[in-house]
Computed example of a mutant assay.
Amino acid sequence: MQLKCVAIDDEPLALEIIKKYVSDYPSLKMVNTFEDAISGAEYLKRNPVDVLFVDINMPDITGVDLVRSLDEKPMIIFTTAYKKFAFEGFELEALDYLLKPINSNRFGAAVHKAIDYYQFKHTDHTAEDEHIYVHSEYRVIKIGVRDIEYIESMQDYIKIHLLSAEKPILTLMSLKSMIEKIPASQFIRIHRSFVVAKAQIRSIYNRKVKLRNIELPVGTNYADFIKDWSK
Rank of each mutant, 00 (worst) to 15 (best):
V6R: 04
D10C: 00
L15K: 00
E16A: 12
I17V: 15
K20I: 05
D24A: 10
P26C: 09
L28N: 11
T33M: 07
F34P: 03
D36L: 03
A37L: 00
P48L: 14
D55L: 04
D55V: 01
M58I: 02
I61G: 05
I61F: 01
F78I: 00
T79V: 15
T80E: 00
A81F: 02
K83V: 09
A86T: 05
E88W: 03
E88T: 03
D96M: 02
P101T: 10
A109L: 12
K121Y: 13
H125N: 08
E128T: 11
E130T: 09
V134S: 04
H135W: 07
V140K: 08
I143G: 00
I143N: 03
G144E: 15
V145R: 13
I158A: 08
I158K: 07
I160S: 04
E166S: 12
S174E: 12
S174Y: 10
S174R: 10
M178C: 15
I179W: 12
Q186K: 12
I188G: 04
R192H: 07
V195T: 13
A199W: 05
Q200M: 14
Y205T: 10
R207E: 11
K208T: 11
V209Q: 08
E215G: 02
E215Q: 15
L216V: 14
N221W: 07
I226K: 09
K227T: 10
W229V: 06
W229P: 00
W229T: 03
